[in-house]
Simulated scan of single mutants.
Amino acid sequence: MWKQTALTRQLGLSVPIIQGPFGGGLSSVELTALVSEAGGMGSFGAHHQTAEQIMQTVRAIRERTRQPFAINLWIPQADSERLQLDEAAFAQYIQPLQPFFDELGMAPPTLPEQFWPPYAEQVEAVLAARPPVFSFVFGIPSPDILQRCRELGIQTLGAATTVDEAVALEQAGVDMIVATGFEAGGHRVSFLRSAEASLTGTFALVPQVVDAVKVPVIAAGGIADGRGIAAALTLGAHGAQIGTAFLACQQSSASALHRQMLFSPQARYTGLTRAFSGRLARGIRNRLMDALQGYEASLPPYPLQYWVAGTLKAAALAQGRADLMALWCGQSAALLRETDAAALMDSLVAQTGEILDARRTGNG
């Protein structure tokens, strides 16, 4: 009974489980297809990809599965695509990171011509590729894009960190909503108010969103096992989105060092910081996060900080330095058990079924 919800019926899924999309190159075709083949919905974070790469990614996923999957993009906010800097301002911005570049024996990066591929080109590629689902964070696509999705048979999935954001998504015509609590790893994807003013926990957020909208609601944030899925469904959600547990699997594109850290005792201690990207995000507390804590007000905005910290991460990763790189991680890391995505899906389905079946029969 629990496997059949408004979400599974709308998407044609066997189980109401969605793999969260990972940006910055952490998603993989293999993981996306595996989750979809197992009856849930895999997701691929394509925020870092060019239009041609997005087309190639969709083709590669389709070669592995005919089941529903999602391609995820970030909606541009403010002037994130039109950041204007001169060399002097750039040098001043990266000064707090200079000691770490020196420690890793690398020269500081130079100002690039472009930080990320243009969103307009990315979204045109998504529309041309026609994935089953177009998911997005940090806002709402334009009415024209949403209308074109409807005409092409592409379902849309938006993320909300507040009830107001969920209502705005529904009013815009978005088909499904992820209600994401502050327990989630990675970026806080708020768009109506600041991320710091939108920190509601999953257990408080989900039932409020369910009461406020009529479209299917997916719970996210702090869910890593069947207990979390059962709780989400009990709160009225029509499905659960899981990020950190899938990121920790060998099929993700997270580095071996990152995956190792997700299973370490240190992963129990996460923090919200702007140090790694210029936007508020949750990761494992480490030396770099702590060192930049006092500089957050003066750090460069997104996407500059994301790009600069990314160059530092590449060098740190090459030297096995987990203390000097972003380690995205939700508050559920202590619950991680599986390192294989197929085994994780089996465990999630079995445990959720045991809990909800026992409750239904009065044996729980």
Rank of each mutant, 00 (worst) to 15 (best):
M1G: 10
W2C: 03
K3R: 13
T5Q: 02
T8H: 06
R9V: 07
Q10T: 07
Q10F: 08
L11D: 09
S14R: 13
Q19I: 01
G24C: 06
S27V: 03
S28Y: 15
A33N: 05
V35G: 03
S36L: 13
G39C: 07
G42I: 03
S43M: 09
F44H: 15
Q49R: 08
A51T: 10
E52P: 00
M55D: 13
T57Y: 05
A60P: 00
E63Q: 13
R64E: 05
F69R: 05
I75L: 15
P76D: 07
P76Q: 08
D79Q: 14
S80P: 08
R82I: 04
L83K: 12
L83F: 10
L85M: 14
D86C: 14
A89Y: 08
A91W: 04
Q92P: 03
Y93V: 02
Q95N: 13
F100A: 04
M106A: 11
P108N: 08
P112N: 13
E113K: 13
A120C: 09
E121P: 09
A125T: 08
A125E: 04
A129Y: 12
V133L: 07
S142T: 15
P143S: 10
P143W: 11
D144I: 14
L146V: 04
Q147L: 11
R150G: 15
R150C: 15
G153M: 03
I154L: 13
T156M: 00
L157M: 14
A159K: 01
E165I: 07
A166R: 13
L169H: 04
E170H: 09
D175F: 00
A179S: 15
A184E: 02
G186R: 05
R188V: 02
V189W: 00
S198N: 01
S198E: 03
T202W: 02
T202K: 02
L205N: 08
V210H: 10
A212C: 11
K214L: 07
K214I: 00
V215I: 15
V217E: 07
I218C: 05
G226D: 03
G243M: 04
T244N: 15
A245D: 05
L247D: 04
S253P: 01
L257G: 07
L257V: 02
H258K: 10
Q260G: 15
P265Q: 11
Q266I: 03
R268N: 14
Y269T: 14
F276V: 07
F276Y: 10
F276A: 08
F276K: 03
F276P: 03
R282N: 12
G283D: 15
R287T: 12
M289C: 01
M289F: 11
D290T: 10
E296W: 05
L299V: 12
Y302M: 07
V308I: 14
V308G: 02
G310L: 06
T311E: 12
T311H: 12
T311C: 11
L312E: 10
L312W: 06
K313N: 15
A316V: 06
L317T: 13
Q319D: 01
R321D: 12
M325H: 02
W328S: 12
C329I: 08
Q331D: 09
Q331M: 09
A334V: 09
L335H: 06
R337S: 12
R337F: 09
R337K: 14
D340F: 01
D340T: 00
A341H: 02
A343H: 10
A343V: 12
A343F: 05
L344P: 04
L344A: 02
V349G: 03
V349D: 04
T352F: 00
T352D: 07
G353C: 06
R360Y: 02
G362K: 10
